[in-house]
Amino acid sequence: MWKEFKEFAMRGNVIDLAIGVVIGGAFGKIVTSLVNDMIMPLVGMLLGRVEFSNLFINLSATDHKTIAEANTAGHATLNYGLFINAILDFLIIAFSVFFVIRQLNKLRKQKEEPKKEEAKTKECPFCISRIPVAATRCPACTSQLVKAEEGA
């Protein structure tokens, strides 16, 4: 069983997946920081100095000024500001992944499309068989091709 597990764990796709998860986690932290530290303060400033990370609805009868204060007191809150931040995190990550996949698909499509090569054969105008481009006489019907093409 250990040998099977080792073979499974050492396959290329499992290692690639592990690397993807680690990089994805790091990328998620960068995006979260971007949203929390760069975008939301600007949006909050534009909306009249609102700090989204501290927007909440207090579900207790006691008045609290911050989420931390309500949490310390053990009171329930609906943290819609944090939810807005999470939505922005998701949208930025989703757009980034979309952009990367789009670029990879473009590169893959370029690799898959064979380059058009010059035709190596042509069609005999008399018998419609395939013959080499450089041929001056058709091997199937023995027609002279140079004269036929000049007259056409």
Rank of each mutant, 00 (worst) to 15 (best):
Phe5Glu: 00
Ala9Pro: 00
Gly12Trp: 07
Gly12Gln: 06
Asn13Gln: 14
Asn13Pro: 08
Ile15Ser: 07
Asp16His: 09
Ile19Asn: 07
Val22Leu: 13
Gly24Ala: 06
Gly25Val: 00
Ala26Leu: 15
Val31Phe: 05
Ser33Gln: 13
Ser33Thr: 13
Leu34Thr: 05
Leu34Asp: 01
Val35Trp: 03
Leu42Trp: 11
Leu42Pro: 00
Gly44Glu: 01
Gly44Phe: 07
Leu46Arg: 00
Gly48Ser: 00
Gly48His: 01
Arg49Met: 14
Arg49Pro: 01
Arg49Asp: 15
Val50Thr: 02
Glu51Trp: 05
Phe52Trp: 04
Phe52Tyr: 03
Ser53Leu: 09
Asn54Gly: 04
Ile57Gln: 06
Ile57Thr: 11
Asp63Ser: 13
Ile67Cys: 05
Ile67Ser: 06
Gly74Asn: 01
Gly74Tyr: 02
His75Pro: 01
Ala76Asn: 05
Ala76Ile: 06
Leu78Ile: 14
Tyr80Trp: 06
Leu82Thr: 08
Phe83Lys: 10
Ile84Tyr: 03
Ile84Cys: 00
Asn85Cys: 14
Asn85Ala: 13
Ala86Thr: 10
Ile87Gly: 02
Phe90Ile: 05
Ile93Phe: 02
Ile93Thr: 01
Ile93Gly: 02
Ala94Val: 07
Val100Met: 12
Ile101Lys: 13
Ile101Ala: 15
Arg102Thr: 13
Gln103Leu: 15
Leu104Cys: 11
Lys106Leu: 05
Arg108Leu: 13
Arg108Met: 10
Lys111Val: 03
Pro114Glu: 15
Pro114Met: 09
Lys115Val: 15
Glu118Tyr: 06
Glu118Asp: 13
Glu118Phe: 08
Lys120Val: 11
Thr121Asn: 10
Thr121Gln: 13
Thr121Tyr: 10
Lys122Glu: 01
Glu123His: 06
Phe126Val: 12
Ile128Thr: 12
Ile128Asp: 10
Ile131Ser: 05
Pro132Lys: 07
Pro132Gly: 00
Pro132Tyr: 00
Val133Glu: 06
Val133Cys: 02
Arg137Lys: 14
Ala140Cys: 08
Ala140Arg: 10
Ser143Leu: 10
Leu145Asp: 02
Lys147Gln: 15
Glu149Ala: 08
Glu150Tyr: 07
Glu150Met: 07
Ala152Ser: 13
